[in-house]
Design a protein around this nucleic acid. Structure first.
Length: 573
DNA sequence: CGCACGGACTCAGAAATTTAGAT
DNA sequence: CATCTAAATTTCTGAGTCCGTGC
């Protein structure tokens, strides 16, 4: 229905007969989820201690105890909320006798159990090669049996074919539910979705499914309700599948359509800044942020159920500060809030004057904890966007701005004279510009400082070698001056060649160091995988003769097969 | 008929595992 | 060539967005 235009190339796999509205497949057959192994009790000599005395736990109580014991040295277990939630749920699982004894988490000693698991891990690592090989083969067999399905005649990889094992819930950031017990998923919890006439998956022996349904308007193979947030979890296809690939393609086509109308939309929200309706003004300012800063929409969240994070529409007064003047800039807005996954967004932005004025108005007579856009919801915003362009929602701006930024940055940064390493540095820098725009961060790798130092030492060594080689060249040249014999001439060439090689190695190391430093706190993967139209990258590779393997690994090439197939070097986003 | 709510899907960084490269 | 180590890749599952529906 979207009328997707084919790029150059074109291939059978990505163009197929249209299905009825909302229908996702005609045939779906699979084996159902793979259930993670049941709990194995601890050996007799591994004991739990309460108040200094060994205490034999019932099987269910012991299992939950092991979840905590495994995390003993994790920062989580030091948090009061984690401890309280864990202890509350643990006690619920205890027998009444155990409840009578175990009343204080501080008196619980899990150290021996913890030590046992550490040793188990080490033992597994130290296994002889053949044993490891055997384990791998077993895993491969499971993957082979449960990891694929048949969808409309194609064998497709499944993303998550295993049920999630039980354990303690670990939310991101200050999550009020951290430490709660995540229950084991049983076949009786699972709904299977497949085609009516397919081989219906067998539940494990002695069990039955909660339900088997035949709904071809959805893409999931199985689902269950998890007990922490009482929400659904799904088993779905791998990104390499045709179904997901087409959806991905469609996403970028919508973003490309935004390119045609974005100027009009920008003109529109600038007009709306002056509207008499406060609601319209708020919508226009929010949209300006979404467009300029690539903020997320920011749906309302249930208070106390999740970590306190916000997006654009849910920003509170306390999340911004207004500076009429700052560091030589006018109308500066200082943002400081926790976004998705409790990742901090911190930014100082000079905004257009009407935006600044409006923000002052929106903040007037409000408490810090009041909503900045108190008359705005994501539904209202998206209704408006839908009206401006078919399929337009707030998130499309992120996709659009990310992809257009990559394209522009590649154009600006790529030097055709550079070698492959130099061009790849440019690519990474363009990718990095997008990651910064989208605020994709990672924690600085634990070994960062050390490995940076090692690299710096390598550079210093190489520098010395280059200097020595330069002297060697000079010496050889002097000798040739004196002797003029062929052997000396050959020696000069040899030394020059060596020098050139060393200089190239040094340049490469320097590039590596620059890249590493610039990248230490930036996560490139998320934008590469979810925001950047892969056809831009494919075209860039073709244009500059960079092998596609240098920017996409195997998994990424599988996910972006559609783009690799269809994009020529002249593709424009 | 507006809106809460559930459902289905994309997007997210940490942790685990594997691979490659240095010694 | 073996072994250690860091980087790359894969796995995992939580956290968002957005839509349809039912009251």
């Amino acid at each position: 229905p979207l009328g997707l235009g084919m790029g150059s190339g074109g291939c059978g796999r990505w163009e197929e007969e249209k299905k009825e509205d909302g229908v996702k497949w005609m045939q779906l057959e699979h084996r159902g989820p793979y259930f993670v192994p049941l709990y194995e009790p601890l050996p007799e000599d591994v004991q739990f201690y309460y108040d200094g005395k060994p205490l034999k736990l019932s099987l269910a109580t012991e299992e939950i105890a092991t979840f905590y014991a495994k995390m003993l040295h994790h920062e989580y277990t030091t948090k009061e909320i984690f401890q309280n939630n864990f202890f509350h749920d643990w006690r619920k699982g205890m027998t009444s006798e155990e409840q009578e004894i175990i009343k204080d988490l501080d008196k619980c000693d899990f150290r021996e159990i913890h030590k046992y698991f550490v040793e188990q891990n080490e033992a597994r690592k130290a296994l002889p090669k053949e044993e490891k090989q055997k384990l791998k083969e077993e895993a491969d067999k499971i993957q082979e049996e449960y990891g694929y399905c048949i969808l409309d005649g194609h064998r497709e990889k499944i993303a998550n074919f295993k049920t999630e094992p039980p354990g303690l819930f670990r939310g991101r950031g200050e999550h009020p539910k951290m430490g709660m017990l995540k229950k084991r998923i049983m076949p009786e919890d699972v709904t299977i979705n497949c085609s009516r006439d397919s081989k219906i998956p067998e539940p494990p022996e002695g069990h039955k499914w909660k339900e088997v349904r035949f709904d071809n308007t959805v893409t999931w193979l199985a689902s269950w309700t998890e007990n922490i947030n009482n929400s659904l979890k799904y088993i779905m296809l791998n990104p390499s599948s045709k179904l997901k690939g087409e959806k991905d393609w469609q996403k970028y086509e919508v973003a490309r359509r935004l390119k045609d109308v974005v100027h009009e939309i920008r003109a529109q929200y600038r007009r709306d800044w002056k509207s008499k309706e406060i609601k319209k003004r708020q919508r226009a300012v929010a949209l300006y942020f979404i467009d300029k800063l690539a903020l997320r929409a920011g749906n309302e969240k249930e208070e106390g159920e999740t970590a306190d994070t916000v997006g654009c529409c849910s920003l509170r007064v306390e999340h911004i500060q207004l500076h009429p003047q700052l560091d030589g800039q006018e109308h500066v807005v200082e943002f400081d809030f926790l976004g998705k996954d409790s990742i901090r967004y911190y930014n100082k932005v000079s905004v257009e004057k009407p935006v600044f004025r409006n923000l002052q108005l929106f903040m007037k007579n409000k408490d810090p904890t009041d909503d900045l856009f108190d008359h705005l919801t994501t539904t209202f915003l998206n209704k408006h966007l839908q009206h401006l362009m078919d399929g337009l929602t707030a998130k499309v701006f992120r996709t659009y701005n990310a992809s257009i930024t990559l394209q522009e940055q590649l154009k600006a940064l790529t030097n055709p004279e550079d070698n492959v390493a130099g061009k790849l540095l440019s690519y990474n820098r363009a990718n990095r510009a997008v990651a910064i725009l989208c605020n994709h961060q990672r924690s600085i790798p634990k070994t960062f400082a050390k490995s940076m130092q090692v690299l710096q030492e390598k550079i210093d060594t190489k520098k010395k070698q280059v200097e020595e080689a330069q002297e060697e060249v000079k010496k050889a040249e002097d000798e040739y001056e004196d002797t003029k014999d062929a052997k000396a001439e050959a020696n000069v060439e040899k030394k020059k060649k060596l020098l050139k090689r060393l200089e190239e190695q040094l340049a490469k190391l320097n590039i590596q160091a620059t890249d590493k430093e610039e990248n230490k706190q930036i996560a490139l993967g998320t934008s590469k995988l979810n925001y950047l139209d892969p056809r831009i990258s494919v075209a860039w590779c073709k244009k500059f003769g960079i092998p596609i393997e240098r920017i996409y690994n195997k998994t990424q090439r599988e996910k972006f097969a559609w783009a690799i197939d269809m994009a020529g070097e002249d593709f424009e986003f």
